[in-house]
Simulated scan of single mutants.
Amino acid sequence: MRHLFSLRWFGLITSSSNALYTDLSGYYDLMCADINYESQSHCIRRLHQLFGNQGKRHLDLACGTGPHIRHFIDTGFMSNGLDLNQPMLDQAKLRCPEAEFSLQNMCNFVVDQPYDLITCFLYSIHYSGSIENLTACIRSAHAALKEGGVFCFNTVEKGLINNNSFVRHSVEQDGSHFVFQSGWFYEGEGDKQALKLSIEKTTNKVTEEWHDNHPMVAITFDELKGLLEPYFEVTVFEHDYEKLELWNTQSGNAIFVCVKR
């Protein structure tokens, strides 16, 4: 199973006395340096063209520092963002001065005007933390969409998680070498899973390490469809931003495309 860093709202527990990552807004882009934001944004625009109402008003939930929003704006969308972390939103505003950003929880957000497309990238939908909160997020997205609007996000199937599978990437910045690692962990029952994260920073041959387990909601795709279908027509695609293929029922990652009923 493929994994991807999802570091929207994350306060690391550090083994060092220096809490370097107390405010992650300055490190977020570094952690996500290997993500192809352009490809992801292009894929979701294609899905919106196929399933949506052709409108251009777009809201990105858990937007972080706004890289997806930048790509949507550059292709003609009127995009805004929402996040729980104000320093992240401050960085997003610098990247996307045309956009409006709102400090809100995606599980109970409200909007002034409805949107044509709502996105939630990088598995951030799992930050809802519980089935109850996830259901509230779905209701909020439904209420915030125009008729024929699309809610689109990627997600992981709890029953197909491999606890021994991790991804790593490294990057150099300001004379330091960083190594990032992430992987899902599910105990095998219940609606709780974790995103296990680790960061190494080496400067002048001295290495510091930070570790964290992010609590996330765990759900099967069938359970998720059951939550969505009272509000949306649901189509599930393979987690491949380069080509559009319906989910094969075997892979543990998927893109959910949900059209407002």
Rank of each mutant, 00 (worst) to 15 (best):
R70T: 07
R57T: 11
R95S: 02
H58G: 06
I69Q: 03
D90T: 15
N105S: 15
M78T: 14
N105L: 00
L59W: 14
D90H: 11
L94I: 10
N85V: 15
K56M: 07
T75G: 06
L61I: 09
G55S: 07
Q86K: 12
N80W: 01
K56S: 05
F101T: 08
K93P: 01
L84N: 09
L103M: 04
A99E: 02
P87C: 02
S79F: 03
L84Y: 10
A62Y: 03
G81I: 11
T75F: 10
R95M: 14
K56R: 13
Q104K: 12
S102Q: 13
I69N: 05
L89A: 13
L59G: 08
D90Y: 07
R95G: 07
F101G: 05
G76R: 09
K56H: 07
D74C: 01
L84Q: 13
G55M: 03
G55A: 06
N53R: 06
D83Q: 10
R57C: 09
S79E: 03
Q91N: 12
M78A: 15
Q104T: 13
D90A: 14
K56W: 01
C96I: 01
N80P: 09
N80Y: 05
H71A: 07
G76C: 01
G66M: 08
D83T: 08
A99R: 04
A92Y: 05
F72I: 05
E100S: 13
F72H: 13
M88R: 06
L82P: 03
E100F: 11
D90E: 15
L84S: 10
G64L: 03
L61M: 12
G66A: 08
Q86I: 09
A99I: 00
M88S: 12
G81P: 07
N80S: 15
I69T: 12
Q54H: 12
E98P: 02
G64Y: 06
F77T: 06
G66C: 08
T65K: 11
L61W: 05
Q104G: 12
M88F: 14
Q104F: 10
G76A: 01
A92W: 04
A92D: 04
K56P: 01
Q91F: 03
N80Q: 14
H71S: 09
C63M: 06
G76Y: 03
